[in-house]
Design a protein around this nucleic acid. Structure first.
Lengths: 362, 362
DNA sequence: GCGGTTTAGCAAACCGGTTTAGCCGACCGT
DNA sequence: ACGGTCGGCTAAACCGGTTTGCTAAACCGC
């Protein structure tokens, strides 16, 4: 025990370098940050001694003195195990990371710590916050505001007067449903995204609700009503999508088309369809949402609503760096993105004889 | 009634709370950290005033005083845009994150900053480092050592006397190749992982080299020689895998089986095979490496070498938290994992008439 | 040789917490 | 009444950097 502690050579500090070089701490600091304030030979001497001592300025001390952390927080109500294995977050985070790095910032993930998102926010040392998927009913949104840090809301409830990035979820969903209707489909199952916390389900402005209303609005145009029974929800993962579709099937639903609110769920649904013994798209069409990279690699390639995942991340960084709501006009702290449908191989004309085929098969 | 509050209200500090409560800074600190040192009513009074002032202890100042950051660094030579969209890293990171959170630690990604991994390491404020995919020729490995932080090497060159997690890459690869050989395949293309930086390619202990030697050892058992020409490399992504297979095809290679060193590449390869006009597995068998979650969702489901992606992450956290090489016996800072082949639908018997079919088709 | 301006570097305050050493008064037994 | 103990709290040092005056010497033109 004791021996172990002594074995640990303490890291050298700025004071060590100053003493060794026979200068003040300030001089050492200058040598690294504003070398023009010192004579060139003093600078080189200090630097040599510093490297000889393996000196590395302590980032934490520097943060404290500067009152900046050079870090942007990426806040999500879901746990990191979910986030990191979710390809949508992957692409979004990649967009954030690229833009952050260009600005010399690093990113830190803020997600529930021992179940408490609030605690995680308190412990996070960041200069700004990008909050993903927070609904109005999340009290954390107020906590963020009180932290006086610049922030921006993504995939959130549409709130006026908040720095936020909006995506035309409803328009994209409408296009997806219209596409299927045009192909002759009339019987749908919708795979909805389960909110990370209970209670948000009724929030009329939540992402899932916006997309649902898009689907319904397209259906309404041909006099079709999508009942609540044909909407099944689950986590936005492949597994969640497969489970949801199986559940729908067990409930007796026999759709010719599946509208998934995320590509991950759509991929899960495609597998579930195959497991049931049907083919995509001959028997069942599937359309996703997000247009992930992987949508081009599925078999068949996935028809999906495109939204600019990486660009959303980059734009979020811009807003936070501009000061979020502390920036001058709120308008510049808001941004709207459009969506569009990308048709690939997972959608086809509705089967005329589906009902009989299924009956035969069962 | 009150004087106009400046829009930029500074955050309240421990001194503000102390003044307001008529106590010392120490008392405020005690009220939050060791309340038993204070009388209960003093504690409640201080806490009330603190919440009234929206006081939140500055994490950075706390880190400096404690000389701990409660953060583990996850270091990769690849950029974050690659990392976040790579499902293998996703699963590994999820394992790290889950274990870290259980220990009350957060994680920070350390990856090249403006092209320099070295600079990124200097700027990182962490208590330990998990380094993924660093080869012997990476000078950063020495920089990490000099930082005197506990660390552990993953997917790295096998080095003696280093805290590290080893995976039986060679055995897994051998099993994959043996499986194909048993199915009658004799003509292979190998999709290798391109090292993040040039130069590592010749490193005999690099992951890619270990897997390759596994493939070759299985081939050698039936007197087969896998030439360097049939090994094409690319980034470990779906796109990289597709491109690599197309490149192989253009070079005139006509394999009946593809051995991909990552599942992402395998998925890309499957798409490329379909684009060429062939079927998986009837015309070409494909086997991956990693056994990602998504391997169960591809069509056909992907045969792959299983390695414990999440467990690797969790074990890495354990080692770093135990002090890495500063822990007592080095043995406890090393860990070996086994691999095994999971056979699914992407592999089948070698086609007897493949050559003719292709000739017809072209 | 003289005031005035640079230049090079220092001392000390500061960032916002934690922690140690110690003070003071209340309570206690005798 | 007295020394001892203890609970409750404070003053001050500290973590490791940055930054703001400020000084002393060198440099300048005349």
């Amino acid at each position: 025990m004791e021996a172990l502690v002594q074995k640990k050579t303490p890291r050298s500090t700025i004071a060590d370098v100053a003493r060794e070089a026979g200068v003040s701490k300030a001089a050492v600091s200058f040598a690294f940050n504003t070398p023009e304030r010192l004579s060139t030979d003093t600078v080189t001497r200090i630097r040599e001694i510093a490297t000889g001592l393996d000196y590395r300025p302590d980032p934490v001390a520097r943060m404290l003195a500067h009152r900046r952390t050079w870090t942007i927080g990426l806040l999500t109500p879901q746990g990191l195990d979910f986030i990191f294995t979710n390809p949508y977050f992957g692409e979004f985070s990649a967009g954030v990371a690229t833009a952050a790095e260009a600005a010399g910032m690093s990113i830190q993930f803020i997600s529930p710590l021992h179940g408490s998102l609030s605690r995680a926010i308190d412990r996070a040392s960041v200069d700004g916050i990008i909050a993903v998927g927070l609904g109005v009913d999340h009290p954390e949104i107020d906590q963020i505001r009180r932290s006086r840090l610049p922030y921006v809301l993504i995939d959130s409830t549409a709130l006026p007067d908040e720095p936020a990035i909006y995506v035309d979820d409803e328009g994209g969903a409408r296009a997806a449903a219209a596409h299927l209707i045009e192909l002759g489909h009339r019987s749908f199952v919708i795979l909805g995204i389960e909110p990370p916390e209970a209670g948000s389900g009724t929030d009329p402005a939540w992402v899932s609700a916006r997309r649902l209303s898009g689907y319904r609005s397209a259906a309404a145009e041909v006099g079709l009503d999508i009942s609540d029974e044909s909407v099944v929800t689950g986590p936005a993962s492949m597994e969640g999508g497969a489970a949801a579709l199986h559940r729908a099937w067990e409930r007796g639903l026999r759709p010719t088309a599946v509208l998934a609110m995320s590509d991950a769920m759509a991929i899960g649904a495609m597998r579930a369809v195959r497991e049931i013994g049907l083919r995509v798209p001959e028997d069942v069409s599937v359309v996703g949402f997000d247009d992930l990279d992987v949508a081009q690699y599925t078999n068949p390639p996935l028809t999906s609503v495109h939204q600019p995942n990486r660009a959303k991340g980059a734009e979020a960084v811009r807003i936070v760096l501009d000061g979020g709501r502390h920036g001058d006009p709120l308008a510049s702290a808001q941004h709207h993105f459009t969506t569009h449908l990308v048709v690939r191989g997972s959608t086809a004309s509705a089967p005329q004889l589906r009902q009989e085929v299924v009956d035969d098969g069962m």
